[in-house]
Amino acid sequence: MAEFRPGDAEQTAFLEQLLDARLLIDSGVPGVYGRGEDFERVRWAFDGKVSEAAAVDEPERLAFPPVLPKRRIEEIGYLKSFPHLAGTIFCFEGDEEQATEQEGKAERHEDWSEYQSQTELCLTPAACYPVYPAIAARGKLAAGGVMVDAGGSYVFRHEPSGDPARLQIFHQREIVRIGEPDTVAEWRDAWRDRSVELLRSVGLDANFDVANDPFFGRTGRLLARSQRAQALKFEILVQIAGPEPTAVASFNYHQDHFTSVYGIEMDAEETTAHTACLGFGLERITLALLHEHGLELDAWPAPVRTELGLG
């Protein structure tokens, strides 16, 4: 079982304020919260800002459910890189007697996992994962490639924490670029700058930095350092609660990782295609805004309210 990471004093206090103000609703499980009306207003407002910023590139909009065939997780090597974060869906597959036993144990809050079998589904850990096979199925890409706006899907990471900014289930607003290596690298850099501006426009002190994913174990250290050495991942950081700024958006240049798994190629003499994605953590951005401007939306600075269309 993943170890619970308690929040520090400031994070714990911020979480309590959010719960008291009914911006978040406690579920009894750390990192899993309902969201109050004002919280959702802010989340949707920022989501709208991303749509506006993306519209100039005329992306194709696709939407996927927050569950993913487990085959996808297997083929992209997720269990090698992040076995500790993956969530798998199990369901009951037994007879009536076993159903009765299961119910008895469940009623007494005992362990009923022995009656559960793994299904063909996992919880989606990153909103861009369903995009690559969907594009691959169309065949070779025309010059310039594609840009897909995968919307704001729920994603799951098993990392229970007392920090309200570290949720187990949250919305990732993800945009994916697939095309020639140069096209993709330029796109990522342009969006990194555009995203910093976007966050600053709503009053957040946003800055970007080179980052790495939380790869698992010793082999993960090699992957993480390699990712940093090649500057394949950037994050935009904003102060929420706690000692250090929190990443609220990330930009990942996967090079040919996904295109080689799914056989995505350019329809050209040089067939190499690369991918990159950017993801906004919508709950983290909402939390950053609440932390920066206060828990009462009506009291936010007028320019910020106008920028977000909050009236």
């Binding site: 090597g77 090698k80 082999t219 090699l222 992957l223 390699s226 990712q227 090649q230 090079q255 040919d256 990782h257």
Partner: peptide, 11 residues
């Protein structure tokens, strides 16, 4: 050699 392949080489 990709980063992921380098992990396999390491192991």
């Amino acid at each position: 050699m990709t980063s992921h392949a380098s992990v396999n080489v390491m192991i």
